[in-house]
Write a protein that binds this DNA or RNA. Structure first.
Lengths: 240, 240
DNA sequence: TGCCATTTATGAACGCGTTCAACATTTCAC
DNA sequence: GTGAAATGTTGAACGCGTTCATAAATGGCA
């Protein structure tokens, strides 16, 4: 499971030795989090397991929760890698590409659903630096949304849909992650079926979007989201 | 703001004196939470402010976060009251009823958006008793969904939509609460406009739902949600 | 090599949430 | 009224996240 940490060097240390220590701490932390859960694992446990003093953990990570954040960054990096590779290798149509994006994300997170939950802890607190919807995580969110932008960029789509789709798909993906966490069905089939079904519906809706019957809905939805400042330009830049 | 605590007696104490103490603690806690924020307020602050020992706070509340839970229960009680009263008094059509449900909820929470955020803290951790989507809060969630069931019950609707609508509206309402928390526009107009617009769309979609063009979509959506066990019977009962 | 700035590492100390054994008060059956 | 059970109250103590003054190690330059 830990190989993903090497996908991109997640590294803020200045020296080689610092990198190593940081990595040791991250490795110990994730192992303990997986074994005994996030809350049951203490920073002292982590430091001891990594063979360093308590303070060292805080030298490399601002706090316990930021270790999870580092993990999630590594997950996103691996996700981007997988997708870049797949896009370069295979020929896929839109639906296949979106399926790949969604499925590969779930595959990466499959055994870490409990860790994932911690990401959502400050979702209701805009000012918290780890709020998964707040300005503190805007950059990470932008990257996540961009994955969907790339997945649809070769498609012939009207401009408004090109703006709407990535954020909608990202939202679907966030919802899927929540369901994934709660999903107790074997291999989380419930979540996987829902994602496939939702993408299927999305495809059908896309081809239907030009129908004159639905035209007013489409522009109305766009107007609504624009007014609510829920479209990408606003979600990823904090204007406060 | 505190009058809502009296709407229904939120009370687990056995004696009159116990009720009083519990109420004092809750009152102090909410005042301090509002003044200095949830995290900046300590249990010792609360106990001191209420004029009791630290342990007393824990006698009446299992933990700090459960004080917020008690607050939110009072909010829901007031919401139900407002709605019962309005439904009994005025004649409203479906859209007006739904607007009333949504708007009155936002009105009640208007000045407590920061407190509200704490409710979402364990949304990603199914096993936590305060997980706002987990089994620990199923009862509260059922009541919340039931408000929407009541708001549509007089409407002539096909059975499947009657099952789908309440949970969808509740989800919309949850989403609105999140947006509400993040909404920095004056009087949170962004959220209010979005809610109104979303309800408007919902009404139009409802009248369109019978159109043969959309029929396959409707049954597909229902099938999807049923498979994902996202319809009320499953959301509110934990089968684990 | 010796010197100093930078980086890395230490662990005691602090504040807070929570627990709990002990004590005080109230309730109520007799 | 009296005793005992139920209810309410206390604050010391514990464990944990986090901070910080201090020390050690490292790297580069003379």
């Amino acid at each position: 499971m830990l190989h993903i940490l090497n996908v991109f060097k997640i590294n803020e240390a200045a020296t080689e030795k610092g990198e190593q220590t940081r990595h040791e701490i991250l490795k110990s932390a994730l192992r303990l989090f997986r074994d005994q859960g996030f809350d049951a694992t203490t920073m002292r446990d982590i430091a001891a397991d990594a063979g360093v003093a308590l303070g060292a953990a805080y030298y490399y990570f601002p706090g316990k929760e930021s270790i999870i954040q580092a993990y999630y960054k590594a997950v996103q990096a691996e996700h981007e890698n997988k997708i870049s590779e797949a896009l370069a290798t295979r020929k896929m149509d839109l639906k296949e590409r979106l399926q790949f994006v969604m499925r590969s994300k779930l595959d990466i997170l499959e055994n870490d659903r409990k860790l994932l939950g911690v990401i959502f802890r400050y979702s209701g607190e805009p000012d918290h630096p780890l709020s998964c919807l707040g300005p503190g995580t805007a950059e990470s969110r932008r990257e996540s949304i961009e994955i969907f932008t790339r997945a649809i960029e070769d498609e012939k789509l009207p401009k408004d849909l090109r703006q709407l789709l990535p954020i909608s798909l990202w939202a679907l993906h966030m919802g899927a992650l929540i369901l994934f966490i709660y999903d107790k069905s074997p291999q989380q089939q419930r979540t996987r079926k829902l994602v496939d079904g939702a993408l299927d519906l999305t495809m059908r809706l896309l081809s239907l979007a030009k129908n004159p019957l639905l035209r007013p809905f489409r522009s109305r939805v766009l107007e609504l989201l624009r007014d609510a400042e829920l479209l990408p330009d606003f979600v990823t830049q904090e204007t406060s």
